[in-house]
């Protein structure tokens, strides 16, 4: 039996989807280690405690609520101290968090503070007796590595979308916790610049419509936006060529040096399929490609392809998707 601690990520007073994924992964890990408990540490500004129920619904036996005005923004040093202090006191087998921008930052801090080994960007977790084995895609998703981790506790950050949140109602007893202060000099957040409103994040969207140079001009990205709107809650992505040219912000870039995504549906519009781009989206469940060059490498990974001028095909597809959604 081994208990597992989860860092339940929030931004401001909103729980992130990756928090439920981390709870799901931790639940499976605790169950596989002989039925331990999952404790979720939910840190945020006053009022964050209202999110505790959701964590219980996905498998948290206990939710440790730590409310502090400092957590309205990403107080990295204090958060790392709060999680690692709890991990030390609770004698956990593992600390699980998401491999998100917060988790990427906090995971190594927590591991160093606990002097624990850390595996990042984990897609599978297995337990055999005292040994933990995880899978982690490396080399820009071109090689899958199986890592064996010894010692306890261990820190595991899980790849967003790799663990589908699964409901598993538990008591979710709420306990109030204390924030640990930062021990030295800290990073101060001066401002948070919000991106385009009204669309889900690339890492969280189940449908992504993405555009490349084949769109010919910045204005034509409107067609991508329209198609994303037709699908409903879809995100918009871009290739590196397009973000380098300033057609879209760098944060929209999907690829080896940008975001790595695995949505249910990825629609690649006017994208040739350079290795750089494929590395960021090849694990998508269904891939659709629309490109004028039938030899383009994107068609090798696409489940469904249409050869044609995207400026003609996309408006037609947008209309057809709208019509299909109305039925």
């Amino acid at each position: 039996m081994a208990n597992v601690l989860v860092f339940a990520e929030a931004r401001g007073s909103e729980l992130r989807k990756v928090a439920l994924e981390a709870v799901t992964a931790a639940r499976a890990l605790a169950d596989a280690s002989g039925g331990g408990e999952v404790h979720a540490l939910l840190a945020g500004p006053p009022g964050i405690g209202a999110q505790a129920e959701k964590l219980a619904a996905y498998g948290a036996d206990k939710v440790i609520v730590v409310e502090s005005p400092d957590f309205a923004r990403f107080a990295r040093e204090s958060l790392a101290a709060t999680v690692s202090d709890r991990a030390k006191a609770g004698g956990y087998r593992a600390v699980v968090l998401g491999f998100s921008s917060q988790g990427r930052d906090l995971g190594p801090r927590i591991a160093a503070r606990l002097d624990a080994p850390i595996a990042s960007d984990v897609t599978e977790i297995a337990v055999t007796g005292e040994t933990l084995t995880v899978k982690h895609p490396g080399y820009a998703n071109k090689v899958t590595m199986t890592l064996v981790i010894t010692g306890s506790p261990v820190v595991l950050s899980v790849r967003p979308s790799a663990f589908t949140p699964r409901e598993s109602a538990k008591a979710g007893t709420v306990e109030q916790g204390q924030a640990s202060p930062a021990s030295g000099a800290t990073v101060t957040v001066k401002d948070v610049v919000e991106g385009a409103k009204g669309r889900p994040d690339l890492g969280e969207a189940s449908i992504i419509v993405s555009g490349g140079r084949g769109l010919k001009a910045k204005e034509n990205f409107k067609l991508i936006e329209d198609l994303a709107d037709a699908f409903g809650n879809a995100a918009v992505g871009a290739t590196r060529a397009v973000t380098d040219d300033g057609w879209r912000p760098h944060s929209d870039q999907i690829g080896q040096t940008g975001r790595q995504v695995s949505p249910q549906l990825y629609v690649a519009v006017g994208i040739s399929g350079a290795i750089q781009h494929l590395a960021g989206m090849r694990t998508s469940k269904t891939i659709v490609a629309i490109n004028k060059d039938k030899e383009a490498p994107i068609f090798k990974v696409a489940d469904y392809g249409i050869v044609g001028d995207v400026l003609e095909v996309i408006p037609a597809l947008t209309a057809a998707v709208k019509a299909a959604k109305q039925h």
Binding site: K300, G305, I306, G308, V313, A320
Partner: peptide
């Protein structure tokens, strides 16, 4: 405390289908 036990190439995506050309392939 962490060692690589195995490395493998991820499964190739099964070959896709080109449905057709232009607007006619949309339906």
């Amino acid at each position: 405390r962490i060692t690589v036990q195995k490395m493998e190439l991820p499964p190739e995506r099964p070959a896709g289908r080109i449905l057709g050309e232009g607007v006619a392939a949309v339906p």
